[in-house]
Simulated scan of single mutants.
Amino acid sequence: MANPEIVDSSFTAIINAPIDKIDLPAWAFSLPEHEYQGCSPAHVAAGATTAPDGRRMSINVEIIGGTLMVQHYVETLAEKDHLVLESVSDIFPPAGRTTIHVKWELSVKDLGDGRCEFVNHVQTHATDEFLTYLDRQGIPFEAFAAQRKPMSLAHNAGETPLFAESIERFALRG
């Protein structure tokens, strides 16, 4: 992507379920709202729909660092052990609505003995709209990214083990 990166974060957790029981797309596109909310105090709502081209879409609403985000995650890769979702997400900072690009990548790797390593990888990039938003306010991109990074890292670090637990429960329910 040509626009600058805001944050790139990756965290891991253990899932105590065999790899053949895990289905990341099935989990993501059937995640009940209460289960999503239980994965972070910042999670507000979740649902699933389809994009205009028919691909599955997960809608997630969360508040990170006081900023409401509505994510429209469209599947770009959907394998049982690897899911890539991309969103041009609406964000609602104090000075008005704008967008950022978010790539959310989930994967699992078999560790043997009925355990897997789960990786929660999130990358955010500025959109042209977002760069214009910052310019209108006189905020240097680097200053915004530096301010945003610790909040995003803390959020992803906190949700990763809880996502792993949710995926584990989903896998073991069969």
Rank of each mutant, 00 (worst) to 15 (best):
V84F: 09
S30E: 13
T76E: 10
A26C: 02
E75Y: 13
I63S: 05
A45I: 00
D81K: 15
E86G: 07
Y73I: 05
G66V: 02
I15E: 05
A45C: 06
G38S: 14
V70D: 01
I63R: 13
H82K: 14
T76Q: 07
Y73T: 07
G38I: 06
N16L: 09
P18Y: 08
A51C: 07
N16W: 03
L24R: 08
T49I: 11
L24H: 08
L77Q: 00
G65D: 01
A28T: 00
D81T: 14
G38V: 10
T49D: 14
K21G: 00
D53F: 10
G54L: 02
D20V: 05
Q37F: 04
D23F: 04
Q37L: 04
S58E: 00
A28K: 00
I14S: 10
E86D: 15
D81C: 11
F29S: 05
I14K: 07
E75G: 15
P52S: 00
K21W: 05
I64W: 01
V74I: 14
T76R: 10
E35Y: 11
E35R: 15
A17H: 10
Q71A: 14
E62T: 09
A48E: 08
K80E: 02
S89F: 10
V44N: 03
E86V: 15
G65A: 11
K21S: 08
I14W: 07
L31Y: 12
W27V: 08
G66T: 04
S87V: 13
Q37E: 12
L85I: 05
A46Q: 14
M69N: 00
I22A: 08
V88T: 13
S87Y: 06
K21N: 12
G66E: 01
T67N: 11
A48P: 06
Q37W: 07
L77T: 00
G47N: 02
S40C: 09
P52M: 06
Q71M: 15
R55I: 10
S87E: 12
A51S: 13
H72V: 03
T50Q: 15
L68K: 12
V84Y: 08
I63D: 04
P18L: 11
P18F: 01
C39K: 07
A26R: 04
G54Q: 05
V61K: 14
A42R: 13
E33G: 00
I64E: 01
T67G: 03
H72E: 00
E35G: 08
W27F: 15
I22R: 06
P41H: 11
H72S: 02
T49W: 02
T67D: 04
K80W: 03
I14H: 03
A28R: 03
H34L: 02
I19E: 07
G47M: 00
